[in-house]
Design a protein around this nucleic acid. Sequence first.
DNA 1: AGAAATATTAAACAAACGTTTGATTTTGAA
DNA 2: TTCAAAATCAAACGTTTGTTTAATATTTCT
Lengths: 216, 216
Amino acid sequence: MMNKPHPKKIKPVESRDRIIQAAVMLFARKGFAETGLRELAAAADVNLAMINYFFGSKKELLKGILDTFFSGYLDIAREKLAGPGDLQTRVGRFIRHVVDYFDCYQDYLLVTITELPHDDPEIIAHKANWARKMIGVIEKEICLPLARETGRKIPPTCIGPMLVSLIAARFLFAPVMEEVTGGAGSLELSAYAEMTTHVFLQGITGPDWKETRNQT
Amino acid sequence: MMNKPHPKKIKPVESRDRIIQAAVMLFARKGFAETGLRELAAAADVNLAMINYFFGSKKELLKGILDTFFSGYLDIAREKLAGPGDLQTRVGRFIRHVVDYFDCYQDYLLVTITELPHDDPEIIAHKANWARKMIGVIEKEICLPLARETGRKIPPTCIGPMLVSLIAARFLFAPVMEEVTGGAGSLELSAYAEMTTHVFLQGITGPDWKETRNQT
DNA sequence: AGAAATATTAAACAAACGTTTGATTTTGAA
DNA sequence: TTCAAAATCAAACGTTTGTTTAATATTTCT
């Protein structure tokens, strides 16, 4: 008698994954609170009760989605920001990979960003935990080298948000910009990565500040 | 008999404004959909029915808030981006004023950004209308001069989101970063405006691109 | 003062919410 | 085949949702 090709739990994955897939899509387009569990169950083609069966609650489902996105983002940071090369090289390859990552996980990104400022005490701890780790990497791999080379001290709590916002801008505004332009007119992805890298690097490593200042 | 100092409708303003005030605060902290009208009425210290009496519906209330924020932002753009001075001067004073504006209307900003990607058909038209006007100003005052001076053609649908995201980063991430650092460690407001201006200007007008590129 | 317009109120509406329950079906190994 | 665990299901749980209604209070103007 031949043994099964899949010895252990591969079945539940189907429904579970369909739920996550549908949830990310709906949360990104309609928002977390606007999306009802019945609507989600219908989109995932599962019974309503399956959501609480697999995830316990709606909030746990959201936390799972946030964790997936944050952990991928943090992995890229640890892998690409560290490693060989000078500041420019490392930041350059980091941004290039993050742009691809954001493009690929666009809905995850939208869910994460739109839920960012909301201060549900059950959610905010999760976000802060991930942010803390990310800030640590940025401090070590960007802020310290930058201070060593140029003497400029910019706190990582400033660099971190700036960097991610800069990269995410394209995707965050995509729905609105599509409505504005009718779909056309956006930069190609690689060109966008290139431009973002240039803006950020020139911005933090370029010639001295202060000479750009003028009156009101 | 002396005539009234305020001949027309100044009374309803009290309740109406308290509702808007409470709504902006709650929408920013809890999100639009998470905020119930009864909770909002309690926070504004008005009767539940007053909200629909003044605004017609919850969505109309949100639209009003978005309109207030967008129109203020567009006013600054028209006033500061146009006017005298070269590109650097104009962008510099624009960013300085926008940073103050975002700081002053922080809750309006959070509401606007977190509701940005959600594609409620009743809301998206409003956002696109404002975005269209803003894109027009940026095209005329930034993209065209930039192309004339440096030959670089960056679409306004790319510059616009990038610029606002860069400036808004500090405020969008503020709730999370406070939890991370415990409140301390953020740049002063004027220093933040200065740095943002430098990053953006160096980024789009600085030395040639392409030399920052390296391998994976 | 009286009439008209505007504000405010308590109460109720149907609909939708997230969650739970208990029974039934499907599954994987003994 | 048998048995226990996992998955699926329909139905109902009690709240809460946004909105409406109709009556009352207040203001405004003639």
